[in-house]
Simulated assay, not measured.
Amino acid sequence: MNNLRQQFIAFSVSKGVLRFGEFTTKAGRQSPYFFNAGLFHDGATLAELAQFYAQTLLDSGVEFDMLFGPAYKGITLASATAVALAGKGRNTSFAFNRKEAKDHGEGGTIVGAKLQGKVVIIDDVISAGTSVRESVDMIRAAGAEPCAVLIALDRMERSGPDGQLSPSSAVQEVTKQYGIPVISIGNLDDLFGYLNGAGADPELLKHKEAVSAYRTRYGI
């Protein structure tokens, strides 16, 4: 793990956003860990999270003109990342969508800057890929180009029921389907490395075996 990724995993654990135990995922799997970006819910924590998003995007080398945050979590993440980028000397416009079109005022479903140029989609995770698909459609419909997806955590696991698991992960499927890179601040390998590292809380080390077994069963 590079230092930024290590810091992000440790930060997520310290804020109770990344938790270990027994959790049921949206796919119905019993997971030994759970990541809930909705728990980054105070000003100081959001500001720190945005620094991770901004630095990861800059470090990726992806050329971009603006940010797009899909409703609902992506709205906060895109706007906070734009603020963090401005603090790093990169003033970047951003936009987000409404779930329902507004029929008065400016109308429409897009709020913020006009979608144009190369657009980075910012969200928390990719599960079924629905949010990415809708975002790509909106961006292309506006004549702009989706150039990357930036997420907090890549679970790096195959989709589908046991016995019929997909050969690729949701993130890999997005890359293949839309031809754009998916950039993550951290991933399952980083999480496992954190548990395996000397700096991990001894209480968390007991979850290492469960995470390892889960990765073996579902990981790419």
Rank of each mutant, 00 (worst) to 15 (best):
V120T: 01
T81E: 05
C147P: 12
T92V: 15
V119N: 00
L153P: 11
I180C: 06
I180L: 10
I180K: 01
A128R: 07
K73M: 14
Q51K: 15
A54N: 03
V132D: 02
A78Q: 06
Y53N: 06
M66Q: 08
D103K: 13
T130M: 14
Q172D: 06
I151M: 02
Q172P: 12
E173N: 11
S169V: 11
S60H: 01
F64L: 09
Q172Y: 04
E100K: 13
L77W: 01
G105D: 07
M156S: 09
F94N: 07
Q172N: 04
M138I: 14
T45V: 12
A141V: 10
M156P: 12
K73P: 09
K118P: 12
F68W: 02
V136Y: 01
E63H: 14
G74T: 04
A128F: 04
E63Y: 12
G143L: 04
D124G: 13
I180N: 00
R140A: 12
P167S: 02
V132W: 02
V120W: 00
L67S: 04
S159C: 14
A78F: 08
F96R: 04
T76V: 15
T56F: 13
P70C: 05
F52L: 09
A71N: 07
G107F: 12
A80Y: 05
Q177L: 13
V119R: 03
M66A: 01
I151S: 03
D154V: 10
G69V: 10
D162Q: 07
G160W: 02
G129E: 06
L58W: 02
N91L: 14
D65Y: 04
S79Q: 07
S60D: 01
A50K: 03
T109K: 15
K99Y: 00
A101R: 00
I151P: 11
F94Y: 12
E157H: 02
Y178C: 09
A84F: 05
G117L: 08
H104I: 10
D137I: 13
I183P: 14
K176N: 11
F52N: 00
V111K: 01
S127H: 05
A170F: 00
A95I: 10
R98F: 06
Y178I: 11
D65V: 13
V125I: 15
R133I: 14
V182D: 00
A86N: 05
V171S: 01
M66L: 06
G89F: 02
I121M: 02
K99F: 09
V120G: 06
